[in-house]
Simulated scan of single mutants.
Amino acid sequence: MRLASISVDLDSLPHYCRIHGLPESMLDDRARSLVHAVAVPRFRELLDGLGAPGTFFVIGEDLESDPAAAVGMRASHKAGIEVASHSHAHDYALTRRGAEAILQDLSRADAAILAATGARPVGFRAPGYTLNADLYAATAALGYRYGSSAFPAAPYYAAKAAVMGALSVLGRPSRSVLDTPRVLLAPRAPYRPDPAQPYRRGEGTVLELPMTVTPALRFPLIGTFATTLPRASLRQLWRTCRRDTLFNFELHGVDVLDASDGIPPELVRQQRDLRVSASQKMARLREVFGWLKADREVVTLRDAAGRLSATV
């Protein structure tokens, strides 16, 4: 049994301003809603063309503040796309807030998703992919079937550390958080975490579905690189993962946006993949989605967790 999942983190543009140390005041109302108003329909078009479902990780406060977000998630749910939780506030420092605050944040996200879609989420992905014992305990307390936060990508970790250091020197520190280096030793394959140290195997009740990285080098096979790497290089990286039981392909809303969609030039300069045209990125994703479907059964992360739970 070889499965694939396509999941999209619906981080709105204010969160990219926070990553890059830019003022959110540069965003007008249209820019703030671009991910839900423009990117979500584009991803639904891609998934419809594939004839397979996907998983949208949505931020609870976006559903509360942006009417287009709630409408889009309701329509996506009705179309068979899984709507899962990406927390309520997408606070990059969520793991540092303490057990009670974490549980409150996730509970608020659950309520917002339930109000928008009529269904309670069963999956969770942490802001900034950062997981710890308190956050894992909250997912267990709320009865999630799975989490998908572990991202054991060494090149990504090193690049993130370098960028955060450079921004600090420039006097505009990032609000992102660098995870513990222990994440680099997390399993690549689905596993049951140790609740006290969730980047290790254990007997936790919430199954962890790590995002796909290659063997050995642990290069991240995510949307950013799928849309910007030369095709031959991407194809070679894809082949190294052919034996994986689950290919967990993680993307972001900005992976189908570009500068012409109305994104401020200051943000485009920092987020370099926004310089690639949306049509070019969608063509590449359409091709990669085709690779997945030709080689695997493409399912939601919820269904992947259900299928794998008994064997992990």
Rank of each mutant, 00 (worst) to 15 (best):
Q280L: 09
S260V: 09
V299I: 15
H252Q: 14
V288L: 04
S277A: 14
R284Y: 00
A259V: 02
P265Y: 04
Q271K: 15
D261K: 02
K281W: 01
E266Y: 00
V276I: 14
S277P: 11
H252P: 06
F249E: 03
K281G: 02
L251T: 09
R272P: 05
L251F: 10
M282N: 04
A294L: 03
R269A: 13
L301R: 13
E297A: 14
S279K: 14
K293N: 12
D273Q: 12
G262F: 01
P265M: 01
R284M: 05
L257Q: 06
E250S: 15
Q271H: 14
L285W: 08
R296V: 06
A283F: 00
P264H: 03
R275P: 08
V268G: 10
R296Y: 12
L292W: 07
A278F: 04
R286A: 12
R275Y: 03
L274H: 06
D258N: 06
T300W: 09
G253Y: 11
R286C: 11
A283R: 13
Q271E: 15
D261I: 05
L257E: 10
V256N: 01
Q280T: 14
V276T: 15
T300Y: 00
T300V: 06
A259L: 05
S279F: 05
E297Q: 07
Q280H: 12
H252M: 09
V254G: 06
A294Q: 14
P264E: 10
P265R: 04
K293W: 00
E250A: 13
A278H: 02
